[in-house]
Amino acid sequence: MSNIAAVRQLVETGKTKLIAAATAEALKEGAAATEILEAMIDAMGVVGEKFSTGAIFVPEMLIAAKAMSKGVEVLKPHLAGKSATSLGTCVIGTVKGDLHDIGKNLVAMMLESAGFTVVDLGVDVPAEKFIAAIGDDVKLVACSGLLTTTMPAMRDTVAAIKSSAASHIKVLVGGAPVTSEFAREIGADGSAPDAGSAVVRAKELLKAA
């Protein structure tokens, strides 16, 4: 197995304790940092797909994302300035009144491993805070909500963004109670049922932009 293939494998299987050494090894053997990073991103794509189809579960996804971030640590000094892989910045948060963040964190991790720069605002985020976080490089805002009681807050957040100066920014919404009809009804640009498909949807939205 080539060193890059090994790194890919270690990300996919979430080997957090072996990844740093393998990444260093691949670099030493002459692989380009960007190339290794691409392999990691591909691996996380596979992880996302498996999660979407129910072949793997939350722990497998968390551990793969952690493995990737440990690998990226090793790559970082070699990547400086080479932001070729950045898909832009995504601001993410759980809407006001809601403190559930496992799903949101998974989406953030998957977006990050797909090449987005992610600004995570945390939980219980009021609409104004979302808007204030939208800087020049922001391409996407992602809102999460798990409570039926915070669906109105999600509606308000989307409405506030869409009537602000940042109205052109794409808004992606999700969380267990969010259906695609609901997303359309509240004026969001898209939604996705899980973290794997969130990345697919995010990329589609930006392509369409």
């Binding site: 793997i56 579960f57 939350v58 722990p59 497998e60 496992i102 799903g103 267990a176």
Partner: peptide, 12 residues
């Protein structure tokens, strides 16, 4: 579990 999946696999 959550709404559409268990938190862990049956094996785990």
């Amino acid at each position: 579990g959550g709404q559409i999946a268990s938190f862990f696999s049956p094996e785990m």
